[in-house]
Structures are given as structure tokens and as C-alpha cells.
Design a protein around this nucleic acid. Structure first.
Lengths: 360, 360
DNA sequence: ACGACCTACTGTAACGTTACAGGACGCCGG
DNA sequence: CCGGCGTCCTGTAACGTTACAGTAGGTCGT
């Protein structure tokens, strides 16, 4: 009784039945008589048996009923990014419908990636990992179904994600159509943790940051395609994907080039820009238009409500769940295209003193 | 090569070494010569061996390096509640520092609680479960370390949580001190999913809702203790813990009793009340004071910034991690008290046309 | 030359479960 | 009285790993 954990065997012996009968008492009640079942369960309770051990079961059944999500950066960061939360929300929702649990795994905690190697999962979802991230190799080494959500496709892995460049171009086109000619873009430059902070050293762009780069270049490309010089666009990099970071970057823009429109590569940054504008008494959208990206819940509640590129992160999470479950079931599904459109709210308007339309 | 998954045995035979040597090649590189190790790993690669199977390892080692969080209601709900997200953030942060992964488990998905029974975890954290929730019994049956975060203590389980009643009383006291005499309280009445929706049938209060009840009664008690009649407080129940729910409830209050102060039992509800007030052209705080509870990130960014009861949910999450890890290590820690104080921002002021102070 | 000691590896024995293939027994129709 | 069938239970044989104890062979100091 000290630490002699009873096992299924123990219970079987005590009840005078075979181990299989005990197992069945828990897992297949229809395979034994009600009285035997009750006797077994009673004796199990008396012995303090806590039910079949999940580890033994997993070993034998060769499944865990769990899907692992590999997150960029440190695990906790996932919760500070509303876009990531929305994706996880959808993912959790889809998996939970199928009775699968969700295991959250950090990426860079240890160089050995022991967490990935020993994760008790049936499949992986990669949340914004780049193809060349060492953790990705580790995941592929597990030879389990994998779905990737993020910027760049990984060879041999189903991918979910929008074309960030095209999507950002829509934002640019909207502003161009309104008549804007001077643009500010707020991006996130540095990775969230140390790494490449020394000047001169090449900055390693991890995870979602790649997607943000794509948004920047998509935006710039669209502006140039409309016939404007590249320096019609000023890109500023925030320290982090936070409202404060966005506000800081926006202040920089407003104090120097003073564009008539700002594109934040995430809603979080754009919302920060709105605060900065409010503080500096720059009226939005009269004197400054602001566009975001993601269509996070908060985007519709800002003052004024934010015009943004909506990419239904929740649905993408659910889609990731569907696909990964299909792969587990041996079905090969095609990933349907993801709707991604500009939602025009009240944070954009023609620039003051100019007419809209007729770009060129 | 069809589906003959190689095992550690297979690799050992192919390499002409013992299984233990293969195991050591992965887990204890210092226990064998570099050349043997490389040979083993090379052959493993050639055979397509993906490394030691986590299920086998878990069975043998009797640990999973994973902590399960049991969530109220359906799993996805966790992500829509910023308070819950903040707690999970802290929890994930603490666990990740210790190399533990986080398994999210829904509660009511299936009546059998198969998910709890077969969860591959070393310990559980209960997020706002009530002592009499059947899932709690299931968790206790697992005989693993458990920490509970939430409203009511569970016998024999370490608990983290503030005294909701006392905390709400602070909010009440603040409003009383300002001179308010007519109060509205926005609570959440019905459980989030079906369950007891029929009139007459007693409503089963699940999870966080209990905490919210405690906040309501703490508030009411404080008002009465100050010498006012119980009907100085009007309680309205929102349909759900969402901004829309809070806004709807606030409209009800503003149209009928028109209190000079509103207490939302969560920030989410209080923020909804702010929107409702703005829409109805009721100036905050001049004509209406609003107080929330939780001190969610968004609370400091509303217009005006929300006065609220701050209970540092992130820290509570980290604390839960610490305690659960301590229990796993066999250490018994005492749970330190949790700081919980009123943060006065700009959403509260004396009621129009009256003097502050001298209550009673 | 001998024991002490180290390095590199091996053998044994679980860890706790469940899939699968039966077997014993009773019942029923012919 | 026999074959067929259904119910309830059992026996066997893994599932893949690792803790622990041990051995073989070499080096080193005296």
C-alpha cells in the first residue's frame, strides 16, 4: 500500500478473472455480464486501481488520440498573439469535435528537440514554422502525418495558408484606389528572442516573421506596379508584434515622412498605429488611413473600426484539424483555397485635399 | 518496407549491437564510443527508424513530461475568454521553462470522460472546475498530482484563486467612496452550453460562473454593509461572457433603473458596457462609472481606460505551474496568497451633481 | 604481476496494456 | 441427439522501450 500501484493484473487476480476481463470491464462493457463487470469494478476500487494506464494502452494500441502543435518561438508567445490564439481556437475546436486532445509544444526550448522526439502524439500541426527550421526536420523524422500552417510550403507536407503577398497587394490597391500616394508600412523585423541582435550579423527570420516580410513585399510590389517609385513606401520595423511596438513605429512614421496611409502587417501593429495617431491628434481616417492584416476580433472594435485584410484564422485552424484528421484516417484531402479579402471599415478614406481614383 | 515499422530491436540486430546500445545512442551519447554511436545512427537512418517510440518510453519510464489542463465547457471556449487565455499563458510559460508540454483537455465532450482517463499526463491542472463536476472525480481517480484554479476549493487539492467576494467588495467600496448610491451589476447567468435552459428547471452553474456569482454576492454584501438597501443594486445577467452580452445587459440597465455605476463581473462584460454607454451617448465617467474584474490587457486600452479589479491571471498561471511541478517532484509547497487589488483608471468618478465621500 | 579502476558494451526483466483467436457452455430447431 | 449459434470468458503473445546489474577487456600504479 506504500507505492505498490495496482495494475490490471493485480485486479484480475483479486477478482479471480483473467486480465482481459478486467480490460473489457473498462473498455467493452458489452463483452461481459453486468454482474461480472460490477464485481471487477468494485474490486478495482477497493484496491485503489485507477483504471487502465494510458501509457500501456498507447503502446499497445499505437495511438494517443492527441495532436501536437508545434509553435514558433517560446511556447508562451503563442498566447500573446491574437492571430495565433484565433488559429489555435479553430484547431482546438476541430480536434475536440473528433475527441482528440491538443498538445502544445514549444520549439526552441532545448537544442535537442527532446520535446518533439518524445511527444505523445499521432500527428503534428506546424504553426508558422519555416521549412529550414531544425525542429521541422525533427518532426518529419517522426514520420507522422503533418500539416503546416504558415508562410512557406514544406516539401511533402500539406499546407494551409494564404498568399500573403497577394493579400497585402489588395490592401495596397485599396489605398491606391482611394488616392493615396505616400505610404508607411509597419513590419516586425527582429525575431522575438535574442538571436542576431548584433549589428552586422544577419538576422535570422523565424516563423511568422517570414509571412510578414511577404506582406511587406507584396504591398511594395503593388505600389510599384501602379507606377509609383519605390520610395513612395517607407518601411519601419517594430521591435515586436505588440500594440506598443506598432505605436512606436507609427510615431516614427508620423514624425518623419508623414505618409497619408499606414499599412500594419498585423492588426496588432495597426491598432498600435491607431493609438499613436490618436495621441498625436492625427485624425483617422481624415488625415491618416490605417489598414491592418488578420481581422482579429479587436479590429472591429477600435475607433474607428479598422480596415483590414481578413483571413479567417479560426477557419484555418478548423481546416488544419480536418486535414490532419483526414491524414490520420488515411484519407488524402485537397486543401481548399482559403478566402482572404479586404474588409473595408472606417479607418480608411481618401487623403485630405485630393480626389480619389485615377491612379497612374 | 510496406508498413513494417523498424524498432529499436531491428536496428540493434542490423547494427550487430544490443538494443541497449541503440537506446543509449539516442539517450546517453556519453555511454558509448563516438564511432559506435555514429554507426548505429547511420543504420537507423538507413532503415527508416524514427527514434525511440515515445509510447514505449512512457510506459517504461512512467512519465510523460506533460501536464494536462482540464478546461470547463468545451475546449474551444478557453480561447474566447481573455482571462482564461492569460491564465493559460502563465501556465504554459511556467511549464515550458521546466520542459513540460501542455495538454489541453475538454471537459464535457463525452460523458465517459475517456479523454481524462486516457490522457497521457503526469499531473492535472483544473481550470475553473467545480468540486462536484463529474470530471473532477474522474481526475481524482487518476491519482496524480492536481492543482485547481478556480472558485471553490476541492478537498485534498491544492488551490489557486482569489477570494472573489472580497475582491468584488473592493470594487463596491470604491464606488461607495465616490458617492454612488445606485448600482448595476452585470453577471453571467446561464451556462455557456444548453443545460437547464428550460424555465423552471434549476440552472446548473458550471465552472467560472460560480466565481461570478461570488463576485455578485460580494458586491451586494458590501453595499448592504454600507447601510444601503439591497435594491440599491440591480443585477442583470448577460447571455454569455462576451462584449456583446455585456453591452446588451448594460442597455437593459440604462433603459430601466439607470444606475450611476455599473460593475461588470468580468472585464469583457464591462468593456461591453462601455460600448453600450458610448452608443447611448452616456458619458463615462461623467454620467456613468464602470468597473470591471480581471484586469485583462484590453482593460487598459479602452476609452476611457477601465477601472478594474486586477488579479494577475498570468501570475496565477505561473504559480499553478510551479505548484504542480513541485508536487511532481514530491515537494509540498504552500500556495502563497495572490495579490488582488483595485486598479483605478479613468472609467470611474463621483456621480454627477453629488459630493464624494461620507457614505452611510 | 596483481588488484583497482575505467570504458564500452550486453542480458535480463520488467513497464501495463489489448488484439486475436479460441473454448466452454447453454439453448434451440430439427 | 446433433449441429449451429450466441454469450461470456480465457490464454497467448506481443506493443517498444529502458533500469539495473553485470562482464570483458584494457590501463595504470606499485
Amino acid at each position: 500500500m506504500i507505492d505498490e500501484r495496482p495494475t490490471l493484473q493485480t485486479v484480475a487476480r483479486a477478482a479471480g478473472v483473467s486480465p482481459m476481463t478486467v480490460s473489457n470491464a473498462y473498455n467493452r462493457p458489452d463483452q461481459l455480464s453486468a454482474e461480472t463487470r460490477e464485481k471487477v469494478l468494485r474490486i478495482a476500487r477497493e484496491l485503489g486501481y485507477s483504471g487502465p494506464d494510458p501509457a500501456g494502452r498507447s503502446l499497445r494500441r499505437r495511438r494517443t488520440d492527441t495532436v501536437g502543435v508545434l509553435l514558433t518561438e517560446r511556447l508562451p508567445y503563442a498566447f500573446t498573439d491574437p492571430g495565433m490564439v484565433a488559429f489555435l481556437h479553430g484547431l482546438a475546436s476541430g480536434l475536440s469535435d473528433a475527441g482528440q486532445a491538443l498538445l502544445l509544444l514549444p520549439t526552441i526550448d532545448d537544442a535537442e528537440h527532446a520535446q518533439v522526439r518524445s511527444a505523445l502524439v499521432d500527428a503534428f500541426v506546424l504553426a508558422s514554422l519555416l521549412p529550414d527550421d531544425p525542429a521541422v526536420a525533427e518532426v518529419l523524422g517522426r514520420r507522422l502525418p503533418v500539416v503546416s500552417w504558415g508562410a512557406s510550403p514544406i516539401p511533402g507536407v500539406a499546407r494551409i495558408g494564404v498568399d500573403n503577398g497577394r493579400a497585402a497587394a489588395k490592401a495596397a490597391q485599396h489605398l491606391l484606389d482611394l488616392g493615396h500616394r505616400e505610404f508607411g508600412v509597419i513590419s516586425v523585423g527582429r525575431p522575438l528572442l535574442g538571436n542576431g541582435a548584433e549589428p552586422g550579423e544577419p538576422v535570422v527570420v523565424r516563423g511568422r516573421h517570414r509571412a510578414m516580410q511577404q506582406r511587406v513585399s507584396g504591398f511594395v510590389r503593388a505600389v510599384r506596379a501602379a507606377g509609383f517609385d519605390a520610395d513612395a513606401v517607407t518601411v519601419v520595423e517594430a521591435d515586436s508584434n505588440t500594440e506598443d511596438g506598432g505605436a512606436q513605429a507609427a510615431r516614427e512614421l508620423l514624425e518623419n515622412r508623414r505618409p497619408t496611409a499606414i499599412f500594419g502587417v498585423t492588426d496588432v501593429l495597426a491598432i498600435g498605429a491607431l493609438s499613436a495617431a490618436a495621441e498625436a491628434d492625427v485624425a483617422v481616417p481624415a488625415k491618416l488611413s490605417v489598414v491592418g492584416f488578420d481581422d482579429v476580433v479587436a479590429a472591429s472594435r477600435t475607433v474607428p473600426p479598422l480596415t483590414t485584410v481578413s483571413q479567417s484564422l479560426f477557419d484555418q485552424g478548423r481546416l488544419a484539424a480536418t486535414i490532419v484528421l483526414d491524414e490520420l484516417a488515411g484519407r488524402r484531402t485537397k486543401t481548399p483555397p482559403i478566402r482572404c479579402e479586404l474588409v473595408v471599415r472606417a479607418s480608411t478614406a481618401p487623403p485630405q485635399g485630393r480626389q480619389a481614383g485615377s491612379a497612374g
